[in-house]
Design a protein around this nucleic acid. Sequence first.
DNA 1: AAGCGTTATTCGAACATAAATACAACGCTA
DNA 2: TAGCGTTGTATTTATGTTCGAATAACGCTT
Lengths: 111, 111
Amino acid sequence: MKLVYKIWVEGKTKAFGEGPYELLRKVEQLGSLNKAAQDMNMSYSKAWSIIKRAEKELGFKLVESNTGGAGGGGSCLTSQAKTLLNKYDEFCSEAGEILTKLYNKYFSELL
Amino acid sequence: MKLVYKIWVEGKTKAFGEGPYELLRKVEQLGSLNKAAQDMNMSYSKAWSIIKRAEKELGFKLVESNTGGAGGGGSCLTSQAKTLLNKYDEFCSEAGEILTKLYNKYFSELL
DNA sequence: AAGCGTTATTCGAACATAAATACAACGCTA
DNA sequence: TAGCGTTGTATTTATGTTCGAATAACGCTT
């Protein structure tokens, strides 16, 4: 028996959480939304809609894309996206640590 | 923009979280699974399956039910269920407080 | 013994969500 | 100018969730 948690930010609907985080890290790494999607065994259209929804909700752009050209184009993160990812990193590691402690405090004996 | 989190306990599949918690509180309050389901605008069959799944995963009974008799019967919580609910209460309020602080620390300026 | 309101259980239908597919547009390259 | 790999978008398909109906059993009440 284990603790599971999902934490995200939302406006009118889900905006940013673990899914967008991982996807954006892959984009940063690979320079392409298409490659990122393939790497995560995800369809391009899903990857695309994840990012578009997040951008719409957050109110700022997460990726800067070029279509056509050498290599067909590509995508890279905006500086706002980069700082968001870094903040999210720190947030999650702190949160995970604390929640694990709380779980042990309250449930370890019971479950 | 706000922080949303869902926290639950799982074994092989979801076992106990917010949904079962609220439902069990209603059962405690109303003495009947049927009334609890109606009160939550939920079908009886859904309420029933929530509790059965939780019991199966957790490995102990959550409700004690009587069928027939005056008023048709009813359900009440086992003592294990009561302590589980109380622990969950404390867990959630502590967790919520801490997560809110963390959210403000990391995201309040950014989002 | 008939009636009542509950628990217990299963099943298919309806609905909502997620995912795959297909195709157009873009701009460099050769 | 044909081809490539990408982004962008709509349409279709698949998957999962939830509801509601149907049925049975139970034991008190009248």
